[in-house]
Amino acid sequence: MEKTQQTVINGLSVDVEDWFQVGAFENVIDRDDWDDLSLRVEDNVLRILDMFAEAEVKATFFTLGWVAQRHGSLMRRIVDAGHELASHGYDHARVFNFDRQEFGQDIAKAQKILEDASGVKITGYRAPSFSIDQRTPWAYEELAAQGYRYSSSVAPIAHDHYGWREAPRFAFSPLRGSDLVEIPVTTAILGGKRVAAGGGGFFRVLPYAFSRWAIRQVNREENRPAVFYFHPWEIDPDQPRVPGAPIKSRLRHYTGLKQMSAKLRGLIGEFAWGRMDEVAEREALLAHATSDEWGE
C-alpha cells in the first residue's frame, strides 16, 4: 500500500507492557503474582521491531520499568534499531492514584532502570492508562523537575477509565515558563463531538476505515500530526485467557487480536510515521501558543 501524499509526520508509539499488566485486569491479577505468569512481552516486541524494520519506520516505545528490569537486552535492541525508548512508569500504576511524592518516586525509579538498561537518556513519558488529568496538576511539575522534555499522557475525551475532556486536542504547554510539552493521544471530530481515534482497543474493534478517516481528518483538514499507540499483547492472539475477569474487560482485551497485525501493517504503510520525541520537537512552538489560548 502506498503512503498517502502528505508532509505531516505522525507519532507512532508502543506501550510496552505484558498481557497481565493492563488496566482491564488490575482487579483480578495481583502484582505480587506477576513473576509467576508467562512473560510474552519480549517475543511480541521483537515481532514489532521486525514489522517496523520491514516498513522502514521509527517509533517510540513507552516501556514499564518493571519490564526493562527483566529484559535489559530488549531495551538495547530497541535503541540500536533507531527507535526512541521512553517511560511508561514503573508498574502501570495510574497517576491519579498517587500523591505527588509517590509519583515523583515512580517516574524517577522507571527512568533510572530504563537508562541503566539502554545507555540512553530518557526524556519522554506516557502515563499508564492516560491517567494525567485535572486531578493531577502537580504531575507536570514533577516531570519537568526530573528532566523529561515531553509527555503523551492525556486522552482529551470522556471515558469510563480515564479522560480529560477539557484538555486541548493537540500539543500544549502545561507549565508556564517550562519547555515541557504535552501531546495528547489523537481524537477526531464526528458530529461536532470528540471521538477517540488514537489506537488501542478502538483500533482493534472498529473498522479500519474509521482510523483512516480520522487520521486523514487530523492530517489534511487540521494539518497536525496524529498520535497512535498500541500494545505488544495486541498482536498476540495466543496469549493466556484470564479466568474471573469481568465480561466487559474480556471483550475489551481480546476482541480483534487475530486481525491486529494485518491492520497495523496497513496503517503503517498508508501514513507517514516517526518517533514521538521528533513530533514533540516540531510541535513545541504551537504547544506554547495553545497554552496561552487555553488560559493556563
Rank of each mutant, 00 (worst) to 15 (best):
Gly177Trp: 08
Phe172Val: 01
Arg194Pro: 07
Gly192Met: 08
Leu180Glu: 10
Asp179Ala: 13
Gly192Pro: 02
Phe172Leu: 03
Lys193Gly: 05
Arg169Glu: 15
Val185Asn: 03
Arg169Leu: 15
Leu190Cys: 12
Ala171Asp: 01
Asp179Ser: 14
Ile189Gly: 00
Ile189Val: 14
Ala197Tyr: 07
Ile189Phe: 01
Val185His: 01
Thr187Gln: 04
Arg194Thr: 14
Lys193Arg: 15
Gly192Cys: 11
Pro168Cys: 11
Phe170Ile: 12
Ala188Arg: 06
Ile183Glu: 01
Leu180Ser: 07
Val181Met: 03
Phe172Cys: 01
Ala171Met: 11
Gly191His: 09
Ala171His: 00
Phe170Gln: 12
Arg169His: 08
Val195Arg: 04
Pro174Cys: 08
Arg194Trp: 06
Ser178Leu: 10
Phe170Arg: 14
Gly177Asp: 07
Pro174Phe: 10
Val195Gln: 02
Val195Phe: 12
Gly198Pro: 01
Gly177His: 10
Glu182Trp: 01
Gly192Asp: 05
Glu182Phe: 05
Gly177Glu: 06
Arg194Met: 10
Arg194Lys: 15
Leu180Met: 00
Pro168Gly: 04
Phe170Val: 10
Leu175Asp: 03
Gly192Glu: 02
Arg169Gln: 14
Ala196Arg: 15
Ala188Glu: 06
Ala188Asp: 01
Gly198Gln: 06
Arg194Phe: 08
Ala197Pro: 04
Ala196Asn: 13
Gly192Ser: 09
Thr186Lys: 03
Leu190His: 13
Arg169Lys: 13
Arg194Val: 10
Ala196His: 13
Ala197Glu: 10
Ala197Phe: 02
Ala188Lys: 07
